[in-house]
Amino acid sequence: MDLLNALVAILNYVVIPATAYGAQLALGALGVTLIYGILRFSNFAHGDTMAFGTAVTIIVTWGLQAAGVSLGPLPTALLALPFGIAITAALMLATDRVIYRYYRKVHAAPVILVMVSVGVMFLMNGITRLLIGVDEIRFDDGARFLITAREWRDWTGLAEPLTLRSTQAITVVVAAVVVWALFWFLAKTRTGKSMRAFSDNEDLALLSGINPNRVVAVTWIIAAALATTAGVLYGLDKSFKAFNYFQLLLPVFAAAIVGGLGNPLGAIAGGFIIAFSEVGVTYAWKKVAGYLGYNADGLLQLLSTEYKFAVSFVILIIVLLFKPTGLFRGKSF
């Protein structure tokens, strides 16, 4: 019985939150890795792109709520998400047209593009602040729980509670659908294949008649969709605060690098590696140890939650030291 309780505690406090967080990071890392693969630079504006997309989605959500539209048990934000994606994609395309395109034309060094993306980061950060301010915002509505602690106890009779928030389930389902759609697109469609070809060998892709402007445009649209979806899911699961999204840049990049920049499967794996490490290292294991017959004095928490970003950093450093190309070799999209 105690063993079961221990497992439930692990499930409740580690596995479920880390799975949801990992899915959010994976979507973010996919966007970073996609831009890296096609446009060949690390996009420092990605965190703020996530924030912008989420801010727009929140505003549309408010509008829908005011108009009395709802999705029943599901959060209204899911209905607003396509609008958020569309507006973010439009902004990304405009940014590309006005800002990035010139640097592609002059074949600027990647580090210059990183610098340019810092400028874009400032812009998007400012626009997000103008739109929605800097305060913390919760925008989840609909049913809060799929499984409540009470229901769980009634069903199982276990002492240890387990709750499954609907936002966690939605995160995993939406992320799975998005990832499936992305991989299907990259593997099966002509445009998707041309993107992989462009990422693989730009010169040969040009020779084959692949239109680089089209590839780049599609890349921005997909990156906007991934960033907005990741941001909205994160915001539903936790809350929206523009600065927290900027801070997500580190775990998102760490996930992309751990998986090998430019490798989408690696980005997903990297997202979950980072999320599980972060949650596992910052969880207080006292309760689980108690069920297993060891009564600890302390919390048995390896690191306080304030240091969760240190976990991404340490994993990043370890990978850079031992396997700088990432755990999953080679680009595969």
Partner: peptide, 17 residues
């Protein structure tokens, strides 16, 4: 070059933390 950019982003956040 990108790796230094990201690693320094990390060390910056950690020192502040």
């Amino acid at each position: 070059s990108d790796y230094l950019a990201i690693a320094t982003l990390g060390i910056g956040e950690i020192i502040v933390a």
